[in-house]
């Protein structure tokens, strides 16, 4: 039943990210089981599913953040534009510059707003001059919709902003290194509805430039912002397809139950 339910997206020429037979273990816990997934470029792919189903674990495996957890092991293959990201030749530092990440809890550095955004460009040497760096910071804050709110206080601490502003600062910080993919791990779960609406709007704008993968607990959010949706359950993908399709006409009973709120 599982195999039949997984809709691989054949209509795309080349997916940005392709996961093949991915298995992830924490010590003896088998967190991700045989996941195959193609993530299309310049679109928002939502990963939904009940708590503990492995969606965050899978998301973190795309930029190898799981490497920082000693007990975590992985088999299978994940490719980014055809490059195996778990290949020995791949530099994890460069990979993370190509695949940026926004976390559940807004986590600005205890530095100024400017330094928060400039952090990535500085360590990757993306700016050749101070004016260059100013430019990157300006563009990133502009794209994240934060510029008008913070332009007069770039030297105040990023931690002093409100929750929604902090999260947009974290998004600005991520787009400052100009990644190809942005991973978002429940970016709105710590925010109020208004801040959430602003971020969702931002996500919709950002997909014009970036490939976005978002983990979310909110069905409505997945429906609003994403074009593709993958439904995770107990470490497996039960269903993957166009968001409109999944939400209106789910093929798997479990998906339907989850989406209609019968459990989860």
């Amino acid at each position: 039943m599982d195999k039949a339910a997984v809709t691989t997206v054949q209509d795309l020429v080349q997916p940005t990210i392709r996961a093949t037979n991915v298995n992830i273990y924490y010590d003896d816990t088998h967190a991700i089981k045989d996941v195959n997934l193609d993530i299309p470029p310049k679109a928002v792919t939502a990963l939904i599913g009940p708590s503990g189903c492995g969606k965050s674990t899978f998301l973190r495996s795309i930029n190898r953040m799981n490497d920082t957890i000693p007990s975590c092991r992985m088999t299978g293959q994940i490719t980014l534009y055809g490059d195996d990201i778990y290949d020995k030749k791949i530099d994890v530092v460069q990979l993370r510059a190509r695949v940026g990440m926004v976390f559940q809890k807004p986590n600005p550095f205890p530095k100024s707003i400017y330094d928060n955004v400039a952090y990535g460009p500085r360590i990757h040497g993306l700016a050749n001059s101070d004016a260059d760096l100013d430019n990157i910071v300006f563009n990133s804050l502009q794209k994240s919709g934060l510029w008008d709110e913070v332009k007069d206080r770039l030297d105040t601490p990023g931690t002093a902003l409100s929750g929604g502003q902090r999260q947009r600062l974290c998004i600005a910080r991520t787009i400052a290194i100009n990644p190809e993919v942005i991973l978002m791990d429940e970016p709105c779960s710590a925010l109020d509805p208004i801040a959430t609406a602003i971020i969702e709007e931002l996500i919709t704008e950002l997909k014009e430039r970036f490939t976005i993968v978002i983990v979310t607990h909110s069905m409505q959010q997945a429906a609003r912002v994403s074009q593709k949706t993958a439904f995770f359950h107990l470490g497996k993908i039960l269903e993957f397809g166009d968001t409109s399709e999944i939400f209106t006409n789910p093929k798997v009973e479990k998906t339907k139950d989850y989406i209609t709120g019968r459990y989860g």
Binding site: M65, A97, G100, F103, K111, I123, R173
Partner: peptide
């Protein structure tokens, strides 16, 4: 120092030393 700050720094492609020097020690 919250793990989330380390994650943020690693997530931006910083190495361990860069994270320690730029984020952890200042914090």
């Amino acid at each position: 120092v919250p793990q989330s700050l380390r994650d943020a720094s690693y997530g931006l492609g910083a190495t361990k030393t860069e994270t320690i020097l730029n984020i952890i020690i200042p914090s």
